[in-house]
Simulated assay, not measured.
Amino acid sequence: MSRSRLGPNRYGKAETHVVRVTRDGDVHHVRDLTVSVALSGAMEAVHLTGDNSSVLTTDTQKNTVFAFAREHGIDSPEAFGLLLARHFVGSQPSVHHARVAIEEHLWDRIGAGRHSFVRRGGETRTALVHHDEQATHVVSGIRDLVVLNSTDSEFWGYVKDEYTTLPETRDRILATEVTAQWRHASAEADWEGSYPEARRHLLDAFAGTYSLSLQQTLYAMGDRLLDGLPEVCEVRLSLPNRHHFAVDLEPFGLNNENEVFYAADRPYGLIEGAVVRDGAPDAGPAWS
């Protein structure tokens, strides 16, 4: 008698890198995505007996990404993810749920060039789509967005014990690398319009908040995004504290009035949290 059973599972093709060039006369537009697909459903037989009759191969999933890029174009990461997720669930009886995670690598035009681009440094746009017969969830996002306030940040009044050495400060650098995801209440939205707006709200809140803690700044960023985008029902943020410590220059006969800092990359504080709109619909599997 077996003492085990098959638990939750999914499979798919990870990190298919697709670049779509759209030619509008001699003016070109570039969308550059890394697409990861994961499917789940009636997959017990392939795990328990090796019966592959319900398996849509991961190679086919990869080819579908390329074919859809050609046939449908890429209007936005969210729209492309929805196309793929709905296709996999709708075309395969054994597939009950599709998860499509997308990262977009952004390019800017070089000057007035019509077909010359430079890769935008740092930040990456993200999208995560879950689809099944019960519901569709779309989560937009951004990661690797590095920001810094050189003042208007304090940190004091915290718990102190026998291991505390960190001095209180009334003026410090506050820097972080923003990972933010925002969940839409509907699977239909102006994806291309809402993304730059969400980014702007996050940056405005970071710059405009006199911070007594990074936690306070996190909440202000999420709250500002919800206030600016009514179609968003939840924001999740991960903010590593990129510590900047004033360097002791007294051994060299120099003072240092918060002008020269050592930027420590690790260890670092990691602040994470969610800001949820009152009455927001259930997230279901949206974040997984």
Rank of each mutant, 00 (worst) to 15 (best):
A246M: 08
E250T: 15
L203R: 04
M221F: 05
L218C: 07
E234L: 13
L226Q: 10
Y210A: 13
Q215Y: 01
R224D: 10
G222R: 04
V235K: 09
P230W: 11
L254V: 08
S211Y: 05
R242V: 12
A207M: 09
A263H: 04
G208E: 04
S238G: 14
T217S: 13
Y219K: 03
F252D: 06
P267M: 06
Y219T: 14
E257W: 01
N255D: 15
N241V: 05
H201Q: 13
Y268H: 12
G273N: 03
L218W: 10
A263I: 06
M221S: 04
D223H: 12
G273I: 03
N258D: 14
R266C: 07
R224S: 14
V235H: 05
L203G: 02
N255V: 01
D223Q: 13
P267Y: 08
E259S: 12
E257G: 06
A264E: 12
D227W: 02
V247G: 04
I271N: 02
A220N: 13
P267D: 02
A220W: 02
L229S: 08
P230H: 11
S211G: 08
L212A: 11
S213I: 07
H244T: 00
L249I: 05
V235E: 10
P240T: 07
D227Y: 01
G269C: 06
V247S: 00
Q215N: 06
G253A: 08
R242P: 00
L218G: 00
T217A: 14
V260L: 15
P267Q: 05
F206V: 05
R236I: 01
V247E: 09
H244W: 10
R242H: 12
R236P: 03
V247R: 06
A207S: 10
A205Y: 05
A274Q: 08
Y268K: 02
G222P: 06
L270R: 12
P251H: 10
